[in-house]
């Protein structure tokens, strides 16, 4: 469902998503807020301006795929899919409830529109490479997108997948690193240094791009350039801010997984949103 770009409308929608995501996680009493908020503009751009999808046909063969390898950021994907119409927005308030269809980590078994079940870090890029290989075997012309975390990049399997995708020249694979520079135990460069990250991906045979992961035009033009690369996979290092738009967590290591034990904490996180004059779509 590609829409014409209207900056004001997109800004407003992104702010609404941050409001909804924060509410979902607060209702669940805990969750991975920071890494979901850092991806809002990227996921919104993918589903509203880039990806070929049909909410009425979630398994449509010619659709573009998205593997959210950092599966703990599922709330941003669930919001995107609900707002696209893959399932009712009322589901969103059930995040992590007993018997829910929306578990904390992205789940293709229960959620229409989720293309791959993820959650154990480091596995999604291999799965995306497999999906891209299948597309090539079947002469498909769609793109397989994959979003990995920067902390997740510590996992060695990413680099196995990096070799594989380059070796097989999977130019229908476009990966994005959510480079917010924070992981659970602290700053990425302190826990396990990634730099020079762009050089690493280049050395592995990928075409590397960098973008401001919160700038609408930069996101759109960079992803389109990455899709146009021939003969090799593309990696976009998206410079983002973890917890973006919620001042209780923005840029802070503790944003990774927040605990919301009571009404006071709920009020703190909702009150710290930069924009909060929204109606929840499920109350």
């Amino acid at each position: 469902m590609n829409q014409d770009f209207d900056r004001q409308a997109f800004d407003r929608l992104a702010a609404e998503w941050r409001y909804v995501i924060t509410d979902m996680i607060c209702r669940a009493k805990s969750g991975h807020l920071g890494g979901a908020l850092s991806l809002v503009e990227i996921v919104l751009t993918l589903y509203w301006r880039i990806m070929r999808v049909d909410p009425k046909a979630p398994k449509w063969k010619d659709r573009d795929r998205l593997v959210l390898s950092k599966g703990h950021a599922a709330p941003v994907l669930y919001v995107a899919l609900a707002y696209q119409g893959f399932f009712p927005k009322s589901w969103l308030k059930t995040l992590n409830e007993d018997g829910t269809r929306l578990p904390s980590h992205a789940d293709a078994r229960f959620v229409p529109g989720v293309d791959m079940t993820t959650g154990s870090l480091g596995q999604g890029l291999s799965c995306a490479a497999g999906a891209a290989l299948a597309a090539r075997m079947d002469d498909g012309d769609h793109t397989v997108f994959c979003i990995i975390g920067d902390g997740e990049s510590d996992e060695g399997q990413n680099w196995e997948a990096a070799m594989f995708a380059a070796h097989h020249g999977l130019d229908n694979l476009v990966a994005v690193t959510d480079y917010n520079r924070l992981q659970i135990d602290g700053f990425t460069e302190e826990v396990m240094g990634l730099e020079p990250l762009a050089d690493k991906w280049r050395a592995f045979g990928w075409q590397v791009f960098e973008m401001d992961g919160h700038d609408w035009e930069d996101i759109y033009t960079t992803i389109r350039e990455a899709q146009a690369v021939k003969g090799r996979p593309a990696m976009i290092l998206a410079h983002t801010i973890k917890g973006k738009g919620n001042l209780a967590v923005e840029g802070r290591p503790e944003s990774h997984n927040i605990k919301v034990p009571d009404a006071e904490a709920y009020a703190k996180y909702m009150g710290a949103l930069v924009e909060r004059d929204f109606e929840l779509p499920y109350c």
Binding site: G124, L125, S126, G130, A134, M137
Partner: peptide, 28 residues
Amino acid sequence: PDNFVNAGVAEADMIGVAAGLASEGKIP
């Protein structure tokens, strides 16, 4: 040859690639 894929000495990646293939209807 078109249905043969060598992942190199990278078993974890081989399993992930197979999962991706299976998600697209392949039988790896």
